[in-house]
């Protein structure tokens, strides 16, 4: 074969990509996609506990959209999501860049420490934060008391509780996302920085023109992963505040959980899930669009 012929032909066997993706899909089709489609199907059903399901069209969607609690739950979730992301993203970028500047040995140690919180079981997290947040014997309130502030009702005040949850979540995942970003930073060749330094670029300029653009794929991943996690906030809230006080921390997934497993209305729960999924898809699309359009600028 001549060189030109080889170039015009495909460089690899046509089956290659399918062979690569096949093992993943062997798992994904039944356990991932299959469940998603079933869930989607359930949202169109009226399926009382233990009885055969009946087709209900969009009835369940109407029920959910009519329910003021669903609006409240979505609103709370969005509110906490925005607060969470606005604090998390700059913080974990900052920590990742900082890690990169440390000696590798120090960086490794710091990484393990900041990463440790996510390995802690949620029940234990709840206990520790309960001990820290407690109005009487909480460490934080006792420190605040020394400077004459408080006691601050971290979890029992409707305005403060969402922020106390956000703080806990940031503590829990900051190191995790920072380490993922840091791993991404490791793939950026040092030469780029050396070149930028030779050009006289300052720390911010190096971040702006070298780190950020080259880190974009990983940043996008962190943004998508953390925002999906924020949309699906559930366990922390359930353990610490149970959605209260006065429903100030009632989240969308709590609503879904309640509909499915407390009111036994699986159709309603699935319909709410589909609506939440739509919100997640839209916001993820917007987020990736934002990061991409930035690329062109």
């Amino acid at each position: 074969m001549s060189a030109t012929a080889r170039r015009s032909a495909r460089k690899y066997p046509a089956s290659a990509p399918y062979l690569f993706i096949a093992p993943f899909f062997v798992l994904f089709v039944p356990f991932g996609a299959g469940s998603v489609l079933l869930a989607l199907g359930i949202s169109f059903l009226d399926w009382p506990l233990g009885q055969p399901p009946e087709f209900a069209g969009f009835d369940k969607f109407a029920t959910v959209l009519d329910d003021p609690l669903f609006g409240k739950a979505m609103g709370n979730t969005l509110y906490m999501l925005v607060g969470f992301l606005l604090a998390l993203l700059p913080l974990c970028l900052f920590v990742a860049v900082l890690l990169k500047q440390l000696r590798r040995r120090t960086a490794n140690l710091v990484q393990v420490v900041i990463f440790a919180p996510i390995t802690m079981s949620l029940i234990a997290v709840a206990l520790v934060f309960d001990l820290l947040y407690n109005e009487r014997v909480g460490f934080v309130n006792n420190v605040l008391d020394l400077v004459g502030v408080g006691p601050v009702p971290f979890l029992t005040d409707a305005d403060l509780a969402p922020w106390s949850i956000i703080a806990l979540r940031i503590w829990r995942v900051l190191g995790y996302y920072a380490v993922i970003l840091y791993a991404g930073l490791q793939s950026i060749p040092d030469e780029y920085y050396e070149a930028a330094q030779l050009d006289g670029a300052g720390a911010w300029q190096r971040f702006r023109h070298v780190t950020f653009p080259l880190l974009k794929p990983v940043t996008l991943f962190v943004l998508v992963a953390s925002s999906i996690a924020a949309w699906e906030l559930f366990a922390e809230v359930q353990v610490l505040t149970d959605g209260g006080p006065a429903r100030s921390t009632l989240t969308a997934v709590m609503y879904i959980f309640g509909a499915s497993f407390e009111q036994f209305d699986l159709g309603k729960g699935a319909a709410a899930s589909v609506l939440l999924a739509a919100a997640i898809i839209v916001s993820t699309a917007v987020a990736s669009r934002l990061l991409r359009s930035d690329d062109r600028a």
Partner: peptide, 16 residues
């Protein structure tokens, strides 16, 4: 694959 991420796991337990 990406879209499947958007469905919260609580909706997926029963199908799974």
């Amino acid at each position: 694959v990406l879209a499947s991420l958007a469905i919260p796991e609580y909706a997926l337990v029963l199908p799974q």
